[in-house]
Amino acid sequence: MEIVNTYNLVKKYGETYALDGLNLSINKGELFGLIGADGAGKTTVFRILTSLILPDSGDAKILNLDIKEDYKEIRKNIGYMPGKFSLYLDLSVYENLKFFASVFGISIEENMDIIYPIYKHLEKFKDRKAGKLSGGMKQKLALSCALIHKPKILFLDEPTTGVDPVSRKEFWEMLKMLKSQGITIIVSTPYMDEANMCDRIALMRKGKLMSINSPKNIIKDFDEVLYEIKSDNMYQLLNDIREFKKTKRAYTFGVSHHLILEKDSKDEILEYLKTRNHKNIFINRVEPNIEDCYLQIESLYE
């Protein structure tokens, strides 16, 4: 069952299109990821769906409610964690939680069961000011506050940006747990590796959708042969493989470079690299991941 639908959403800021005809549908109970760089339009999508701003044209429905007409009803049923940090730093953990509960006219105890798995990490600091918490703890508190009224849909705008890998991993574990409780979660991130944790993802670029599918299917749709390649001088290697006339694309990829060649030119490039004095050349066919897919799809749009 679809819980979020957008039809040709357009939003302009000055001359730039933050959203340029976005069509999106998200299913109930899904962990859905919006993947894209700064300026791709992720925050604008969130703001429109949470009824914070109106689109210039197009429509959107959440829980079968219209974002323009029924915003009051929508606001009762969603939780939102904006990208900018939104707790009150001069209030304690407990005061923050209590305040956000009262915003929705409930007590903390009423919905403790839903936040407890997260809140239990915070319980012993409940009198500490939010400003004195570590980054990971602040994030847990913000998530607890966004959940306290048991929303049907949870919107998280770049919750993990600037967060270290360990805390990021923990955070995604919490999201999976929430999903198992039946909450639909829509999350945006600039980290490609986090895409694999989502049921489905939308790859966004310049206000448009490049692709929307499950991570698995997106990877399956990668229709090129991908090689990883290494040698002793990695920087020189990158320059050299780019100069090779049958190279379609080449880019750095952690320990190795990833390389897409025209058909059947693997042996040829090895010969070529030897003439460029590379030593210990290692080339191997590898399976693409989401990041490779993003780069492939993006290259089609340029």
Partner: peptide, 24 residues
């Protein structure tokens, strides 16, 4: 200091190539 936070994969790569070049 965290020069590539929130940056898309392509830009990130271009940036690292620049770093490589400077190091060379």
């Amino acid at each position: 200091d965290e020069p590539t936070g929130g940056v898309d994969p392509k830009t990130r790569r271009q940036f690292w190539e620049q770093i490589y070049e400077a190091a060379s």
